[in-house]
Design a protein around this nucleic acid. Structure first.
Length: 602
RNA sequence: GGCCCGGUAGUUCAGUUGGUUAGAACGCUAGCCUGUCACGCUAGAGGCCGUGGGUUCAAGUCCCAUCCGGGUCGCCA
């Protein structure tokens, strides 16, 4: 069916203006909106660039006018005509000075009334948007985000290529390794009973590439983790992954500051100051209660452990005695904003992070109330107030517990209060590096130390001798790039000494056999000469979300998954045919116990 | 796995202490309208109140279970 005939697009909708007035042009797209005024018809034509108004009136051929009067939302059309100045300008539209006086109109495809209007200024439930994602993607905001994502990828490629990085694809079907996130598994048909994993990241391959002599590698890589979703976490996501040889921490940071600077400049026109400030992990935790601090506002944590260590309040003194700490936030001048009810709410937040409670002192003008001062002597009260810098109008929020709980709770409260009270300046990008991460993290469930970053991370030189004797005190040559409280990316210098790598595996509780079984190929590879190297990976989805000002990465992914890791448009994951399972030699679950396959949207 | 929020016309929502015929706006349909752009005016259609049980004379409303979506803790080397 040759509906277009010999008609071909000459211009995109939003790429015409007063300069083209008088020209005969052809545009193509979907009808966003039509306004039939009787003797004259207007229709907004939308294509990937934006909107152009089509006009039909007295001078329009009767046949064309009839077609125009029948236009409905989402009809796909081609329109030829003469671009003309409008009688009345629409200042809200980029093409609002002009319109196309249509002389030939072809309806290429009719359309059913969509389940929701294809406009930005309308609220629609996520579920519906995702079920009809192709309609959602027509809406300008999402359409632009996806287009911008492509531009960012272009800038990234151009930047790394200019710096002599080589783009290399690594396999998607790989060996499953323990440690870290749960793998997505793919059964092998050819080798029954065996499984591939989908990569959580190209980590091992990029390290191998460094000792394959490629010097500098990058890839915009899809990664998979079979873990629960969040607003900023999808089971499949995209990383900007890079690695470089003969580099130390500073080299990696400098290259990637340059990358981020280039992206912000070319995509947003925002100039970032480099180098970014650095802050150690310890400092970040002590000051902000977070390893990804939002430094756009203050309200830093205050450690009052020494002040209350011997005090009369058992909760405080006990926490310190047990090796924990007592820290607080001083919500300056917020006594009137933070009512008792509000403090109760904050207490609930603190509890979700494991705190047993939230002690407070509220210095409101009418009355000073406190949940803990009654347990303290006058001197202790005064000392604590002084340590916190408490003044009239302030609220102190105190958590006493293990450090990890104290930091998590106060870090979360700090953000919650700041958000609610509007203390966070928008339109600002506070970048920083968080450095010197712990090398290990004690896992209570596993009863052993686990790698905080991954087991190939180089320890700091000064902590090398503590890998076995005091793992908890070891710091790593690892760094995260943080902006506005978002972890944008992270990386490390890798171990390139097989002997040190073996020590790491031992410290992590790997037996010789287990280490060989899982990482033998890597340990072998490092026997044949490995340059010092390091790298990092950015969360590409998070980066794009940051650039378009979205909280959820779903808003920058064309076809995202929902909380149960399904995809609503196609209805996956879904059951498969018995025959497929037989080929893979996978026992089928009794079909009676399995729910009906969900119907894909047709 | 835990906790919180939501599910009522196509859409977004309202719906009182359980009480007669479940409303609004937008969209949709029909008619009118020659400069609109959130066009306007008139009329109209449109409801398994997520689903299944229960309580009650009576359930959109209360209880239990379950499904779906969102947020979050755990989890995410």
């Amino acid at each position: 069916m040759d509906v277009m005939g010999n008609m071909r697009r000459t211009h995109y909708c939003a790429e015409v203006g007063t300069e083209q007035v008088g020209e005969t042009i052809v545009v193509a797209g979907s009808i966003a909106k039509s306004r039939d005024l009787g003797g004259v018809v207007f229709a907004d034509l939308r294509d990937t660039t934006g909107i152009l108004q089509l006009a039909f009136g007295d001078a329009t051929d009767a046949g064309v006018f009839e077609k125009a009067a029948g236009l409905k939302a989402e009809y796909v059309v081609m329109a030829a005509g003469t671009l003309q100045k409008r009688e009345s300008v629409n200042p809200t539209l980029p093409t609002g000075q002009v319109e196309l006086f249509v002389t030939d109109l072809r309806v290429l495809s009719a359309a059913e009334t969509p389940p929701f209007e294809v406009r930005d200024d309308i609220k629609v439930k996520d579920e519906l948007r995702l079920r009809y994602r192709y309609l959602d993607l027509r809406r300008e905001e999402l359409h632009r985000a996806i287009t911008l994502r492509s531009r960012v990828a272009g800038v990234v490629r151009a930047y790394y290529l200019a710096q002599r990085f080589v783009e290399i694809e690594t396999p998607m079907l790989i060996k499953s390794t323990p440690e870290g996130a749960r793998d997505y598994l793919v059964p092998s048909r050819v080798q029954p009973g065996r499984f591939y994993a989908l990569p959580q990241s190209p980590q091992l391959y990029k390290q191998i590439l460094m000792l394959s002599g490629f010097d500098k590698y990058f890839q915009i890589a899809r990664c998979f983790r079979d873990e629960d979703l969040r607003a900023d976490r999808q089971p499949e996501f995209t990383q900007i992954d890079m690695e470089m040889a003969f580099a130390d921490e500073q080299d990696v940071r400098t290259v990637n500051e340059g990358l981020v600077k280039a992206v912000f400049e070319e995509v947003l026109g925002v100039e970032l100051q480099t180098p970014f400030p650095c802050m150690t992990y310890t400092e970040a935790m002590e000051r902000y209660g977070s390893d990804k601090p939002d430094t756009r506002f203050g309200m830093e944590l205050c450690d009052v452990s020494t002040v209350v260590s011997g005090c009369g309040f058992g909760v405080f003194a006990g926490a310190v005695a047990a090796g924990g700490s007592v820290r607080l936030l001083n919500a300056k001048g917020l006594a009137e904003k933070l009512s008792r009810k509000e403090i109760d709410r904050l207490t609930e937040t603190a509890k979700t992070y494991g705190a047993k409670g939230l002690a407070y002192l509220r210095l409101a003008p009418d009355a000073e109330t406190s949940s803990y001062e009654k347990f303290l002597s006058e001197e202790e009260k005064a000392a604590l107030r002084a340590a916190a810098g408490a003044e009239a109008g302030d609220v102190l929020l105190v958590v006493a517990d293990k450090d990890a709980v104290v930091f998590a709770a106060l870090g979360a409260l700090r953000l919650e209060i700041a958000k609610k009270q509007g203390m966070i300046p928008e339109d600002r990008y506070d970048f920083l590096w968080v450095t010197d991460f712990p090398l290990f993290e004690y896992d209570e469930d596993a009863g052993r130390y686990m790698a905080k970053h991954h087991p190939f991370t180089m320890p700091k030189e000064e902590d090398l001798d503590k890998v076995e004797s005091d793992p908890g005190a070891c710091r790593a040559k690892a760094y995260d790039m943080v902006v506005n409280g978002i972890e944008l990316g992270g990386g490390s210098i890798r171990i390139n000494d097989p002997a040190l790598q073996a020590r790491m595996f031992r410290a992590l509780g790997f037996s010789e056999e287990r280490a060989r079984e899982n990482f033998g190929f890597l340990m072998d590879a490092y026997q044949y000469g490995a340059p010092p190297h390091g790298g990092m990976a950015f969360g590409f989805d998070r980066m794009v979300a940051l650039l378009v000002g979205k909280e959820s990465i779903r808003d920058v992914i064309a076809f995202p998954k929902v909380q149960n890791a399904g995809e609503l448009m196609t209805g996956c994951p879904d059951l498969v045919e018995e025959k497929q399972l037989e080929e893979l030699q996978i026992a089928s679950t009794a079909s009676a116990e399995v729910p009906e396959a969900s119907e894909a949207q047709g």
